[in-house]
Nucleic acid binder design. Structure first.
Length: 648
RNA sequence: GCCGGUUUAGCUCAGCAGGUAGAGCAGCUGAUUUGUAAUCAGAAGGUCACGGGUUCGAUUCCUGUAACCGGCACCA
């Protein structure tokens, strides 16, 4: 038998007979390592301990201490154990796929009866039995015919379809967890007893299309989470509770920011507090855009279908547009309009008015464009996905040569805006030309490299998503990371060679001839509604002072202080602060608690001491104590703090 | 749109093997003048999401619709 040479992480290497398993390699290093071993990495590939190694390479033995491989194995084996438990409880259930995902796994099943939330407990109990049995896990390589014969006999049509999709010549591997078997690429643990029976939980049930395809049957998906130990699971569940507390829908109700109701699903009813945040954010964006050389415009809400036909939207998105039909006087047919689902065609109309010269470019037209899209009922989610929303939209009309500079300027503006709003971390994704596209390859080359160069001016890490660009041009997408690590795609920068052509945009060049401008679609916040939702969740409702809808409550301790309370409120208001008086006949404890729960950032408590000294006792949200300042001092401090970041 | 779930007072939630409902908080009224996260008392508050059916009788059972929640699909 031939020899192979395996190199260890410390740089040493040793020879083994070909076909040696990682378990044997671990044993040869130290029996204690063999006991703790769970899997191995061979040239970066994650393999089973029992897998025969036939070629030389670099090997590392994994134990439960190696977080990434340990979690992958645990979650993957849990998926199998859960599927086994489900088939044990309901033998008529068909199995499909069960990948590792996020903090756990899911497995999709096909069964006539729906699973109920109560079933989850029964499944968990069955899983614990399987773990306690410590059944060995073993694997075999099967040829296609044998696998097909097996799953035909077992009446598992989804598995048969999976086999069909695996390329010819690829090994099919079969895993057994005890007497339950599943087609799987592995790797897996050595026995089910290695699973932490106290560190998993089945979390929820959901429907999911087979292979993610809406035309295929809907399966029943069961989600679970699993960790290496009970403490990690508990920490995860606590984190979920914390995230639920930040839910902008809950905070929106508690802080009286907005509401939704049946008669206008997906449309926001902004209340005074919420609208204050909105206006503050809008004013901020307006100042930033004007300072960055944009001109603000406003275009119609209701636009005849012919414009959407010309732009191409009617054909592609008719189903998602709100249609307004009008009986015009004397007309035989109703006139068909659409509520605008986006602003770009209207912006081209503004551009097209009057002859443009190359000297006018780049022309940056911005609009807080109110748009309506008929989103499917199941996709709406609080402020995050709505049917009526406002974009911080702008279109830059420029020459091809100006793309790079405009992109660089935009990146600068975007990162500065995100930093001002509390988001210092964001990721960039570059989506390049798709198979189906318009425009010559040379122009795509130019646009893609311009975008890439522009990013590299700002930072050196970005993700490339080949083929995911829009049909009209490549694009950049920006994902920011919030306080609890979630990512939100907000900004976008898209190069468009198509729409200027379809809508006949032109400029007169230096050469006196007419040329097509390039159009850059760009947004930083995306939609105000969604971005405010993100802000609320990021700050858990405790917005920075300049964005807080209610900035200061001046609360009396005794009613003899009421006159001075009103004087303090008037002083603060004159300094531009959103201040209100609370002179109700309640204890200061009660007032402090109520305004703290309402997330008012500053409470000024006023008793007779303050009246006498013309001072205030200032109490910040979440701080224990209070501090006494003169009224003048408090006014100046708060006014400075409440200044929007771009005006400081 | 699809699968599953939910819908009871302003909010959070009980309840009903079918006999038209209950709590806490909020709100209202009164007392209390209070020093940094809930003062006490009283009265009041509901077409049990909406429509149809079964029944002597439906908030409860069946059925349809809508909205919402968790996912899936979609997201110009």
């Amino acid at each position: 038998m031939s020899q192979i040479s395996l190199t260890f992480p410390d740089g040493n290497s040793r020879d083994y007979p070909a076909g040696v398993t990682a378990a044997e390699v671990a044993e040869s290093i130290a029996p204690s390592l063999a006991k703790r071993a769970i899997s191995a990495n061979l040239d970066g590939r994650h393999i089973d301990l029992a897998w025969p190694i036939t070629e030389s390479g670099a090997i590392a033995i994994n134990t439960m201490k190696d977080e990434a491989p340990a979690l992958e194995l645990i979650r993957h084996d849990f998926a199998h154990v859960m599927a086994r438990a489900v088939q044990a409880l309901w033998p008529d259930t068909k199995v499909t796929i069960g990948p590792v995902r996020d903090h756990g796994w899911f497995y999709d099943f096909d069964r006539a009866e729906p699973f109920t939330p109560e079933d989850l407990g029964a499944i968990e109990a069955e899983m614990k039995k399987i773990i306690a049995a410590r059944d060995p896990v073993r694997t075999e390589v099967w040829d296609r015919a044998r696998a097909i014969a097996h799953y035909t006999a077992a009446n598992e049509p989804f598995k048969l379809e999976l086999i069909d999709r695996i390329p010819d010549g690829q090994d099919l591997r079969m895993y057994w967890h005890g007497d339950w078997q599943d087609l799987c690429r592995g790797p897996h643990l050595q026995n089910t007893g290695q699973l932490p029976a106290d560190a998993f939980k089945l979390t929820h049930l959901a429907g999911a299309y087979w292979l993610g395809d809406a035309t295929r049957p809907m399966l029943q998906r069961i989600y679970g989470v699993a960790f290496r130990n009970r403490d990690d699971l508990k920490a995860h569940l606590t984190m979920l509770e914390e995230a639920a507390k930040r839910d902008h829908r809950k905070l929106g109700r508690e802080m009286e920011l907005f509401h939704f109701q049946e008669e206008a699903p997906g449309m926001v009813f902004w209340h005074p507090n919420g609208w204050t945040i909105y206006r503050e954010l809008e004013s901020y964006m307006r100042r930033r855009l004007i300072a960055a050389g944009y001109k603000e415009i406003k275009t119609p809400q209701v636009v005849d279908r012919v414009l959407w036909e010309r732009s191409g939207h009617w054909e592609a998105y008719r189903e998602n547009m709100f249609i307004v039909e009008v009986d015009e006087e004397g007309a035989k047919e109703k006139r068909v309009n659409a509520l605008k689902p986006m602003n770009c065609p209207c912006h081209v109309q503004v551009y097209n008015h009057g002859l443009k010269s190359y000297r006018d470019l780049p022309l940056r037209l911005a609009e807080f464009g109110s748009c309506h899209r008929y989103e499917s009922s199941g996709s709406m989610h609080g402020l995050m996905r709505v049917r009526g929303f406002v974009q911080d939209d702008a279109h830059i009309f420029c020459t091809e040569d100006q793309i790079e500079a405009e992109c660089a300027k935009f990146l600068q503006l975007l990162s500065s805006v995100y930093a001002d709003l509390g988001f210092d971390i964001f990721d960039i994704k570059l989506s390049t030309r798709p198979d189906v596209r318009v425009g010559a390859d040379e122009i795509w080359d130019k646009a893609e490299s311009a975008l890439e160069k522009a990013i590299l001016n700002v930072r050196n890490d970005f993700e490339v998503d080949p083929g995911e660009g829009a049909f009209y041009g490549p694009k950049l997408d920006f994902k920011l990371t919030d306080a609890i690590g979630r990512e939100w795609q907000c900004g976008t920068f898209q190069v468009d060679f198509n729409l200027p052509d379809r809508l006949g945009a032109e400029y007169v060049g230096e050469d006196g001839a007419k040329h097509r401008p390039v159009m850059l679609h760009r947004a930083i916040l995306g939609s105000f509604e969604r971005f405010i939702g993100i802000l609320i969740e990021n700050y858990a409702g405790k917005l920075p002072l300049w964005l807080a809808p209610r900035q200061v409550v001046v609360a009396s301790i005794v009613s003899d202080a009421d006159d001075y309370v009103h004087q303090v409120v008037a002083t603060l208001r004159a300094a531009g602060l959103r201040a209100e008086a609370d002179t109700r006949n309640e204890k200061i404890n009660y007032k402090v608690r109520e305004h703290s729960v309402a997330k008012v950032p500053v409470i000024l408590a006023i008793g007779m001491k303050e009246v006498e000294n013309q001072s205030v006792s200032i109490r910040r949200l979440d701080s224990q104590g209070s501090q006494t300042l003169s009224l003048e001092e408090a006014k100046n401090t708060l006014a400075t703090e409440a200044t929007p970041p771009d005006l400081r």
